[in-house]
Design a protein around this nucleic acid. Structure first.
Lengths: 156, 156
DNA sequence: TTCTTTATTAGAATTATTCTAAAGTACTTG
DNA sequence: CAAGTACTTTAGAATAATTCTAATAAAGAA
């Protein structure tokens, strides 16, 4: 009896939602960023970029990958995240000394950060307006403006 | 032959600049914060609060302490910093995932952060004005507003 | 003083991340 | 499209910052 599978894609390991079309799109994206298109990168990129704006740590992504049936190592997750970061496909959010968050939202925006749970929530840029920026010290340029609004549960 | 020392203070180990008057002031400060007045705390507080606004890591303070001839352990430095933090004598600045900075400036202000060197520079609050704060998610209150301006050497 | 509580400490443990070096895979070039 | 070269992946060791442990010491109360 022949396999009832509707199609046989190019991936060795099937990953939910990673259709051939989606895979081609991701390959283009990696190529455009000058990254070799390896299976781990394609699959991790799919998890990262396949569900809207996301904030996640390396451990988060590693867990997701395992849950999705991938067999990538933690080191590869770190490598991929750092390469994507350097390539401008991701942005880092620094809200906790001790843990790095990666953000797939590349547009200008800020964050709410819930201490305790570690949850990050985007704040659209229009909702915060910074006027009167201080003068930048000589010899430097401002490479980023981070605004973090720390949240605590309201004590009733 | 008697010692030519001008005075003999209450400290076992002399620390530069820690006069009896200064020690009394620090003791008051610790008491007011509900902290027992131990030698390590007094000496670390002297290093921390004796030279204007400072930004430093636990390792920074530990090195300073050793250089000053103190014999505190690294664990004590961490303990003291965390207790001072909790007591409101210090504030934490989060600009680097991987390392905590402590800030003796308790007034409202923001920071420049030099990536690479790890240097922190205060930005007075008047020089940044945030208008139109976003609405806080239900059940939470904003416990802090952190603004970090990241600096890179200007590429000539 | 003496007692009780809280601090200090050395070193082990933990957590997040990076490194190492060996084996595998992608891209290039002829 | 075969071979070579360069880049990736990986398991596990290594590192860095910080916290924990449990034993000793010092502080404040009675």
């Amino acid at each position: 009896m022949s396999s009832p599978s509707a199609f046989i894609g190019p991936s060795k390991t099937a990953v939910a939602g990673l259709t051939p079309a989606r895979e081609r799109a991701l390959i283009q994206r990696l190529r455009a960023a000058n990254l070799r298109t390896t299976q781990p990168r394609i699959q991790l990129a799919h998890l990262l970029f396949g569900q809207g704006d996301r904030h996640l740590t390396a451990e988060n992504l590693f867990s997701e990958a395992k849950a999705a049936g991938l067999t990538v190592s933690l080191a590869t997750v770190y490598n991929a995240l750092n390469q994507f970061l350097e390539a401008g496909l991701l942005r880092e959010v620094i809200v906790d000394s001790g843990r790095s968050y990666f953000d797939t939202n590349l547009t200008n925006h800020f964050h709410f950060y819930v201490d305790g749970t570690g949850e990050l929530i985007d704040v659209p840029p229009q909702s915060i307006t910074i006027t009167e920026m201080p003068k930048t010290p000589d010899g430097f340029r401002v490479s980023g403006v981070d605004v973090v609004l720390r949240l605590e549960p309201k004590s009733k």
